[in-house]
Computed example of a mutant assay.
Amino acid sequence: MPPEFWTSTPLSGVHSTVKAFFKHALEQLTEGDDLVNKHGVKLTLEYIEYLNKKNAELKEQIALRDDFLKRLKSKI
């Protein structure tokens, strides 16, 4: 897994030992022979990536809304 994945995930605000535990657990699952676990890890990583993108979109929408409200307030 790329190192940037771990800094851009929702887990980035979590205590480093918890983050390291999840990273280690996912790496162990990808190294095993069980296909279900490998695909589960892949699906989990894709979902985290989707959540990161959705989170960024929502932050952008909130920023636009806040800007609009500031402009509206200044006109009153």
Rank of each mutant, 00 (worst) to 15 (best):
E57Q: 10
K19R: 14
I62T: 12
D66F: 03
E57K: 07
R65A: 13
N55I: 08
G13K: 15
K54S: 13
T44R: 07
K19S: 09
L35W: 03
H24I: 05
E49R: 11
L35Y: 04
T17V: 06
P2D: 06
N55D: 02
K42E: 05
V14D: 02
Q61L: 08
Q61N: 12
E4W: 04
K70E: 15
A20I: 02
A63E: 03
T44L: 11
Y50E: 14
F5V: 06
F22P: 00
L35V: 10
L58I: 06
S74P: 00
L11T: 03
T7A: 04
T7Y: 05
K19H: 04
A56P: 00
E27Q: 11
D66S: 10
T17E: 03
L58A: 05
E60L: 07
E4D: 08
T30V: 06
L69W: 01
N55W: 06
K75A: 13
H24W: 04
M1V: 06
G32V: 06
F22H: 12
N37C: 11
K73N: 13
T30L: 15
V36H: 07
K42Q: 08
V36I: 14
K42P: 02
E31K: 03
E49K: 08
T44I: 03
E31F: 04
F5A: 09
E4C: 04
K38E: 09
K73I: 08
S8V: 01
Y47C: 11
L51H: 01
E4N: 07
D67E: 15
L51I: 03
L72S: 10
T9A: 11
V41G: 02
A63Y: 02
G32M: 13
F22I: 14
P10G: 13
E31I: 01
S16H: 07
T30P: 00
L26V: 07
N55M: 10
S12A: 07
N37R: 06
A25F: 13
P2N: 15
K42Y: 05
L26I: 12
Y50S: 09
Q61H: 12
S74H: 05
V18E: 10
A20P: 01
E60R: 09
L72Q: 10
F68G: 00
V41I: 13
K70V: 12
T17L: 12
M1P: 11
L69E: 05
F22T: 04
E46L: 12
V18Y: 14
S8E: 09
K42R: 10
Q61I: 09
E60V: 09
K54T: 13
K54H: 06
I76P: 06
K23L: 06
S12F: 10
H15I: 00
Y50K: 12
E46A: 11
R71D: 11
W6C: 05
K53I: 04
V14E: 01
K70H: 11
E46N: 11
I76R: 15
E49S: 07
K53V: 01
I76F: 15
P2F: 07
F21E: 10
G13N: 05
H39V: 04
T9D: 02
G40A: 06
I48M: 14
E27A: 07
F22Y: 12
M1L: 14
R65F: 14
